[in-house]
Design a protein around this nucleic acid. Structure first.
Lengths: 233, 233
DNA sequence: CTGTCTCGGACAACCCCGTGACAACGCCTC
DNA sequence: GAGGCGTTGTCACGGGGTTGTCCGAGACAG
């Protein structure tokens, strides 16, 4: 955790680009955001990011072509972002060498979880060997011991049996899942799980963490006195 | 789910072949792709796949003939792929013993669904006995339990009886069918079912989901409180 | 031992979703 | 062009789950 993971993000929509950039930076990533394919390629060459997020539809040089260009000169993981779920986009993206894809509009926590998952496959965060070759986008199921979090189906199972979570509990668990092992302060959780800018009572976090604990198991979420909570990896 | 289903794919167009191969592998299939009929037959004998996807127009040995050869020595399910929807191709393919028929350009999700449907008929996924012999070529049908969605004929049947859907309901159901088990948020549905950019009232989704429910069955579409809806797989 | 922090239960307000009704719109028929 | 029909988007209302707050007991560090 000492050094930041560098993310290149190419997206033409100003609102989405800046919002996502902020969201990623809040999650500890260093982000270079570019509005079109050509500047994206330049930035890639200049910055050498650890992972690239490319929108399929961007002016200048479209995401798929950009993905190919990046693949030609590097093996960094690439995640494609598409406005439509059309399989043709997905296929083209994967054909161009992408490792995963996400459809807009996406949830911030889910996106981060995907990024982490892809990086993990490439051996960035965990000690696993690189180039495992696992199929990309494996259904978005994150596994923590006997706990499984399905980020697409929004389902959680504990040792096989389904667990019913409320929306807030689910968002909370998604945040924890996006950064397993990392301590998340109450303020940070308030910003992300609850709509940002609050200033209210941080006790809300305590209550919901406790409620979440009773459902997924007491020892799953660890409390770090004076700092916050973290999900045991 | 432990062991992969082996798919043989014969297709001469490089782009389509590789793209589809990646798409299928992404969905958990093991794929052997061949560019012509002869190598396809060889690969079939060597690999003994669980299902074969054959393009009608391939050099060397055309798909229809290849299908017959395969039928001569095996009962594995076969799906024909054709650039044209010409009835003559369909008839020829089905006569040769094909079990289903897909026209290019095809949607990746639809193709996967077809493969799964055919395999199910042959008892691969469910515990049913093999070789059921259900009528082949039931065009473009996605099957979810007793619900069948014909993506080509835009028809829906519920346990055999046809269901009359309005255009909006059909588009909605298609979106759900394209990603069964995945939660689709109201925003996402608004962007896709209703034309892009709205910002209006998301209640429209609620109403139409409810209307769809009354027609295809109440428990088919699950509501995930705080997130959206999803189609039960 | 003491102050700070966290846990746990309870409660009332709130929000989200389902439901029925209604008016506007487009399309086809006459 | 007029009429009828099916479809669609909006609205209001109600119920039930969810949420945020409060307070007291317990745990931890200095």
């Amino acid at each position: 955790m000492a050094e930041q993971t560098h993310v290149l993000f190419v997206e033409d929509d100003d609102v989405i680009r800046e919002a996502t950039q902020l969201a990623l930076e809040r999650d500890g990533f260093a982000v270079t955001a570019m509005p079109d394919g050509l500047s994206g390629l330049e930035a890639f060459r200049a910055d050498r990011p650890d992972i690239a997020l490319l929108d399929v539809m961007v002016p200048g040089l479209d995401g798929v072509s950009l993905c190919r260009r990046i693949r030609d000169e590097s093996t960094v993981p690439v995640i494609m972002v598409s406005a439509r779920a059309d399989a043709i986009d997905v296929v083209l993206g994967l054909e161009a060498g992408a490792d995963d894809y996400v459809t807009k509009p996406f949830d911030g926590a889910v996106l981060v979880a995907r990024i982490r998952a892809v990086l993990r496959r490439f051996g960035h965060a965990s000690g696993g060997a690189a180039g495992e070759g696992a199929a990309p986008g494996e259904g978005g199921v994150l596994v923590f011991g006997d706990l499984e979090v399905d980020t697409e189906g929004m389902e959680v199972t504990r040792s096989g049996t389904p667990v019913a979570l409320t929306p807030t509990e689910m968002r909370l668990l998604l945040e924890f899942s996006a950064a397993p092992g990392t301590v998340l302060s109450r303020d940070k959780l308030l910003e992300r799980v609850w709509d940002y800018g609050w200033g209210g009572d941080t006790r809300v976090v305590d209550v919901h963490v406790q409620r979440l604990r009773t459902k997924i198991g007491q020892d799953r979420i660890e409390t770090v006195r004076g700092f916050g909570y973290k999900l045991k990896a």
